[in-house]
């Protein structure tokens, strides 16, 4: 049963932890990615970092939008990596393996985020 007043379930806590992880990854992408872009390297990281940070923040706010921002960044990552290295499994490994694993976890949080959103809406209307 969803609890009503403040105290969170384990899945909600895990969702928040995931949000923090995504914010940290996103910040690294933005900061180090800006460095890389200024050195003349790929601009992918700094671009991708922005939706990651935003997605993490929205997840912390209990908003489903956060998960979708992450999944959008993941889709962008796949498109970019296929453009950069083609269908080469060895080269797709660092680019997509970790982000996709994280993406599966993020997808699993969508029901949790929905529940949090619903609860907030309910609380808002009571």
């Amino acid at each position: 049963m969803p609890n009503t007043y403040g105290s969170r379930t384990l899945t909600e806590w895990l969702t928040l932890v995931l949000g923090v992880v995504i914010i940290l990854v996103g910040l690294f992408f933005v900061i180090a990615g800006a460095d890389l872009a200024m050195l003349g390297g790929s601009v992918y990281y700094v671009i991708c970092g922005i939706p990651l940070v935003a997605g993490g923040v929205f997840m912390l706010m209990g908003r489903t939008l956060g998960a979708f921002l992450y999944l959008g960044a993941l889709a962008y990552t796949w498109v970019w990596s296929l453009w950069e290295v083609g269908f080469s499994p060895v080269d797709l490994l660092p680019r997509d393996f970790g982000p996709t694993l994280l993406g599966i976890l993020v997808a699993l949080t969508i029901p949790v985020l929905r529940r949090m959103e619903t609860r907030r809406t309910l609380r808002g209307t009571v």
Binding site: G41, Y45, L93, P99
Partner: peptide, 17 residues
């Protein structure tokens, strides 16, 4: 730069820099 590798995009980014 695209030959840089790693376990994840994080260490790959480190190596790209």
């Amino acid at each position: 730069e695209t030959d840089m590798w790693g376990m994840s995009p994080i260490d790959q980014l480190f190596c790209r820099i």
